[in-house]
């Protein structure tokens, strides 16, 4: 009998490690858990309920689509958990639970499964869900509660428990009743954009401020991101490029008109820039694969973030910047293909 050797012909890298998609994804979930814990400590049981609702809805949607398409279940690969957690972390803490669940359905269904599941989606699913919610419910998604409210562990924000498809109860009275001195329900970005009040960057770095549930603590997000980078499970180039470019551009604006544009540290620690740069821009599906491409992609998103915040009508621009970056990343890949060995460049470098 002739021995047949099966030759696997494939591109580099040829060296394999035992890391699988599931393992990386599980580590991302571990890295997100401290951020979730901090968000729950800061905003209370409403945030816990919101995170549970988005994650459960994401898992349920994934299972439903898997069953409908007649393929095996893919909920074991943790990607739906990540989508659910990330979506929950980008939402205002008091958002009605049904809106969160709807966002998770949109994120996993139209955002990922209709493209063919994990690895085929164009955009970061969590941000697709958030973009849908922002367009559908512009008021609810910009209604923030203040951090460290009194009684946040014993009672829900009134808007959290709205009936499905019904309006949320007004929360102004609740915020006024439960807020601690020195805290406000407006996010630093909103204060800066609409009231021209700049929050001190150092206090923002520590994280005790109003905002989307998981975006408030840059130090924690940095630590959790570093964990993934050190374990080699995430590219350091994309967050570095995105953060650096936004700092540089913000500094340029700040030097041109310091009264109108806040400084680079404010830009770095406010809004969802840190969370977006660390956990959403680095989605391995949506980012380019070449190192040069990653730099271009990161710089593009950093620039867009600052441009939208400073020049646009919206207070926050990270979400649209990353979605645009996702859309452009195949093009960036195409333009930054390394030349084949032996190929000559037209011009001598």
């Amino acid at each position: 009998m002739t021995a047949t050797t099966v030759l696997a012909v494939r591109t580099s890298p040829h060296a394999h490690s035992t890391r699988s998609v599931e393992k990386i994804m599980a580590n991302v979930v571990f890295a997100l858990l401290p951020i979730c814990g901090y968000a729950i400590w800061l905003f209370g049981i409403s945030t816990l309920a919101l995170l549970l609702a988005t994650t459960a809805a994401a898992l349920g949607t994934e299972q439903m689509f898997c069953r409908a398409s007649g393929k095996g279940s893919t909920i074991g690969d943790f990607s739906a958990v990540i989508t659910g957690l990330l979506l929950g972390l980008t939402l205002p803490p008091g958002l009605p639970l049904w809106m969160g669940a709807l966002g998770a359905f949109i994120a996993v269904g139209p955002g990922k499964m209709v493209f063919g599941g994990l690895g085929f989606n164009v955009f970061n699913p969590a941000l697709v869900g958030r973009a849908f919610l922002q367009a559908a419910f512009p008021v609810a998604i910009t209604t923030y509660t203040s951090a460290k409210a009194v009684g946040r562990f014993t009672e829900f924000v009134p808007s959290t428990l709205a009936w499905p498809f019904m309006k949320a109860a007004p929360i102004t009275e609740w915020v006024a009743r439960t807020k601690v001195d020195g805290f406000t329900g407006a996010t630093p970005l909103m204060l800066q954009k609409f009231d021209h009040v700049t929050t001190e960057p150092w206090s923002m770095f520590l994280g005790e401020r109003a905002g989307s549930a998981g975006e408030t603590a840059p130090w924690l997000i940095l630590l959790c991101g570093l964990y993934l980078i050190i374990r080699g499970m995430m590219s350091w180039r994309v967050p570095a490029a995105m953060l650096l470019s936004s700092v540089v551009l913000a500094q340029a604006f700040h030097m041109a008109d310091a009264a109108r544009y806040p400084g680079p540290l404010f830009v770095l620690f406010s809004g969802g820039l840190m969370l977006g740069a660390m956990f959403m821009a680095t989605d391995p599906v949506g980012q380019p694969v070449t190192p040069r491409g990653m730099w271009i992609y990161g710089i593009l998103m950093g620039t867009l973030t600052v441009a939208i915040r400073f020049l646009g009508g919206l207070a926050e621009g990270v979400m649209y910047a990353i979605l645009l970056g996702n859309a452009l990343s195949p093009l960036i890949d195409n333009l930054t293909q390394p030349k084949t060995y032996g190929e000559r460049r037209k011009a001598v470098a």
């Binding site: 009936w163 498809f165 309006k167």
Partner: peptide, 15 residues
């Protein structure tokens, strides 16, 4: 749906 319905503004917009 009655007056408490939260409209999905997105559907009135071009998307």
């Amino acid at each position: 749906f009655g007056s408490r319905f939260e409209p999905w503004v997105l559907f009135l917009l071009p998307p």
